[in-house]
Design a protein around this nucleic acid. Sequence first.
DNA 1: GTCTATAGTCGGATAGAC
DNA 2: GTCTATCCGACTATAGAC
Lengths: 220, 220
Amino acid sequence: MAKKGNTHAPGTKERLLEAAIDVFGRHGFDSATTRMIAKAGNVNIAAIPYYFGGKGGLYQAVITHIAGHIKNEAGDLLERIGGMTFDQEDGPQQARELLRAVLERFINFIAGSEQGTRFARILLREQMFPSPAYDTLFEGFLKPVLDALSTLIMAASGESDPRQATFKAMTLMGQVVIFRVARETIVRGLGLEGYSPEELKEIRRVVVANALAITAPPSE
Amino acid sequence: MAKKGNTHAPGTKERLLEAAIDVFGRHGFDSATTRMIAKAGNVNIAAIPYYFGGKGGLYQAVITHIAGHIKNEAGDLLERIGGMTFDQEDGPQQARELLRAVLERFINFIAGSEQGTRFARILLREQMFPSPAYDTLFEGFLKPVLDALSTLIMAASGESDPRQATFKAMTLMGQVVIFRVARETIVRGLGLEGYSPEELKEIRRVVVANALAITAPPSE
DNA sequence: GTCTATAGTCGGATAGAC
DNA sequence: GTCTATCCGACTATAGAC
């Protein structure tokens, strides 16, 4: 590595992108102003049209960045799941183990990491109010994740209808996502200060236990 | 009923409120403009400062309206749950039945009604990005709903830790809410046109089945 | 109560110096 | 590449006619 490693000081373009992830996530595309973003990234406003062609181009760059990053992080696991057949005797058990792994990773990312929190704000906005950039996210990883979860659910529970499996997969996603969406309500309802490592552990435990209960094979 | 019933033609103030629910929900407080709202409600812009003191007052009125409406719809059920002890032999069974009722109502409202959809957009924004108006929602019904669900879960499953019950309650909320938040992803993933009555029925079935699996009492 | 006109502020983008 | 200055459009709110 002659060039710098992961922690190189970000140049103007990188600082803009980082700032944009934060500001677009907090305010949404329309309310976010190029002035806010420029200030947050400590760059001149004119750098936005210069590097990204304008506010819209910067947003698209943010989406591409997020999709690329997540594919990078989770792509291997998703491909592994897609390539499995679960046709051995311990297939259901394998599927349940993978389900646990996926859910725990997902919870840690979305509720337990700063970067996941920032990404989630953008992703949730695109879920609720899709922009033209939504396609990038759907094809890039929303669809793959949904398919992988459905596969695991079918393998674990014996459910054979892919449509039912997809609905079940969504309920699993929902159980994770709610801890990001309704963070304020949870925190306030329980009198917390935020999610401590202990609370994160409890969340993982509850969600995984639920997932196992939900995918219990029909008693034969 | 000397006065008009439920379907009276709305006056300027009512039309503004209805339009505001829609526009604030779709765009958020900052991005929503008084011009949009006035146009959507077919009233003059100046009516907003006149009737509500300004954009902020109109938003607060929207929040109060939503909180009042939901309390009106669900208050009786919540109070009934709060007043029950579930100490008879069939307490767990009672709790499970109520859980089913609450979840089905909630799903129909949030995923199956136009009004619920409009309300949900505002509510979800307040969940993710609480404004000063969030307090009204939290005290008005978020806390009561969370408490009621926790009560039902404890009664149904034998869980005795209120904190665990609250986490479980959130996972139930999440399973419902995801069908609103990620509607686009679900619809696109399954190649649907939207939620038909049949799909709504499937959603209710899956979520209720999950809830029963999750609250199954420990095998004694 | 409802309207028009307008004041005053802030938005994104650009031109052009350096 | 980075800056300042500026254009022009859109915003909320108000004043005042009717």
